[in-house]
Design a binder for these strands. Structure first.
Lengths: 191, 191
DNA sequence: GACAGGCTAGGACAGTTGTCCTAGTCTTTC
DNA sequence: GAAAGACTAGGACAACTGTCCTAGCCTGTC
């Protein structure tokens, strides 16, 4: 049904299911149904369920890195690039409204489980954090770069959580606009 | 061991375990171990696990309402009251750093599960939202009251999520200070 | 002291979980 | 065509899940 090697299909299916149902709530049977393989056959590709999680996190890290690299080319200015990030809230709204932010919800779940891969999952946040920080540096905010990056991260996390809870697209749209306005008003210093 | 009726002990234990482990991840056996009763005995007090969840949510709603009422008396001015809310991030930091925000994480989990009690859990958010809105109304921001309330809610949600992920108390402290500064700078209009 | 009802322990029940084994089927290489 | 290794289906396994039943215990009331 899917594409790529069986291993890749397992990772892809797990990636989506972990997002939609949560990690613990997703069973081998769920994944097997999607990939159309027998349940006992997983052992040949992954020794444990945690190994699948690690592979999923790695895939998300790779995907995120590619996305950030694309934004660097797509956006002419640092501000335009940061807006690419802000706008994911609208781009992925149909998913966020039902399942929240894929990064935040996984980190929260693994924190509650005190899972060994918690630190690895947090690296996705770090990827965005560093990338956003670099954009602010190029805007001449070398000293505040990380603080501003965290501000943008935190803003979008809060909006995702409340947008999800209240299922309110208009609120999210309004906040995205306000974040863009805030960004536009931010003075551009010289490096 | 605990206090109150057995039913109350079950709700108390479930309340804490649902927060620390998540709802789905908490089993009857977990609760039974804390309350020190036999597993099969739950049926006499609650027909299903979902009934326990409903009771926990109701308890949280009640507790929140009392807390908000206390803040109304504790804080002399609306700004002082809002700061009571902002400061929970520091007050409860030892829990938040490990388990996140109890309100946000439950709402997110129930959203993923598409659980019937999702709307009921969201009411805790609404309680804070309406209360914060009232404070802003009394500050003379009748028209912006709900928008400002959502801003404070969203701010704290974002900080809780990132503070939890990065396990960074200094960041949370700094953001709390900044929120208080922002609040102090907010003009007080006449009603 | 008999009786009723609230409450309890212990276990049965069918279903699911992650893990692991075995037997067999493909595909590749010589 | 034979041998080897990658891959697969199916099921066994013990542990656990939420639910539910039964028998018995306590604490009241008549």
């Amino acid at each position: 049904m899917g594409q790529g090697t069986t291993r890749q299909q397992i990772v892809d299916a797990a990636d989506e299911l972990f997002y939609r149902q949560g990690f613990e709530q997703t069973s081998f049977a769920d994944i097997a149904k999607v990939v159309n393989i027998s349940r006992g056959n997983f052992y040949h590709h992954f020794k444990t369920k945690d190994d699948i999680l690690d592979a999923v996190i790695q895939a998300r890290l790779d995907r995120t890195q590619h996305m950030l690299a694309d934004w660097e080319q797509e956006g002419a200015t640092p501000k335009a690039r940061i807006k690419c990030y802000i706008r994911i809230l609208l781009t992925n709204w149909s998913m966020i409204k039902d399942y929240g932010c894929p990064v935040g919800t996984l980190c929260t779940e693994l924190a509650k489980l005190n899972h060994a891969s918690r630190a690895e999952a947090n690296k996705v946040f770090t990827l965005f954090r560093v990338w956003l920080g670099n954009q602010f540096k190029w805007l001449g905010h070398a000293q505040d770069a990380d603080r501003l990056a965290m501000q943008v991260l935190s803003w979008s996390q809060g909006v995702a959580t409340l947008g999800n809870a209240f299922d309110d697209y208009d609120y999210v749209k309004q906040e995205v606009d306000e974040m863009c306005d805030w960004l536009d008003a931010l003075p551009v210093g010289t490096a």
